[in-house]
Amino acid sequence: MRAVEVVRPGPLTTLQDAGRVGVAALGVPRAGALDPEAHRLANRLVGNAPEAAVLEATLGGVALRALEPLLAAVVGAPAPVRVDGRAAAWGAPVRVPAGAVLAVGAPTGGLRCYLAVAGGFTVPPVLGSRSTDLLAGLGPPRLAVGQLLPVGLPTGPPCWIDPLPLPAPPGELLLRLDLGPRADWFVPTAPRTLDRGRWTVSPASNRVGLRLLGPAFERLPDRGELPSEGMVLGAVQVPPDGQPVVFLADHPTTGGYPVLGVVPAADLTAAAQAAPGTPVRFTRSNR
């Protein structure tokens, strides 16, 4: 078995791929890489199919020992990359000799680093995906010291390019919002709050949702309770305290709080990299 050994798991590192499709009606969340662009790019750099499983290292900090020569790439949040202590490229394929340790440091901006190896991580899929879902308890557990991760055979040529320019950390997260399906559950001033409000990313944010702190959205008093209904990726759910939560990949399939609007998937890549304290604004989109 081709494999790598986990030397340091980092604060929160999980396996992620494109997630679970077609099982929401069973109550199974989608999961999958929170930053799908970085997931695809990491795979492209090492010659994998776009949906191959990679490591999503929240706050970086992951280190792996290659048990045989390996090709790897780190993208997403910019972070120092080292092979046996020597500086290596971020955003380009990196050769890791047998026995060497590939280490990703703490990100210098953003939150989540994506580490792909040629051949992909081939842990057994669960319900069609290799993604870890900590809330639902599906897929491989989070990484632990000494764990061996199986690696597949390389499937395509790597992409030998000059290292990518480092993305600047977002000074502000600007999220477009398509109102609905439950915008009519809120007081008439809610759209004004939306246009003028300024929020920050709460430290309580996780893979389930980007929790925002700032002006509260007030519900109409006569609406009562919303019967549970299906939830989509990017839904801005408003619990009774009025502080919005933007649903990310591990969001529950149904929920009982009204959804004011939905953030288009394209804007969630930036949301996945927004560290706690990042200022957030909404803009109502005119499709």
């Binding site: 499709v21 929401a24 009606a25 019967p227 209904e229 299906g230 939830m231 399939t253 149904t254």
Partner: peptide, 15 residues
């Protein structure tokens, strides 16, 4: 269509 999700008073069609 990726998902058909029935709930209490609704059915969601996603994807």
């Amino acid at each position: 269509v990726a998902e058909i999700v029935p709930a209490a008073r609704t059915v969601l069609l996603d994807g």
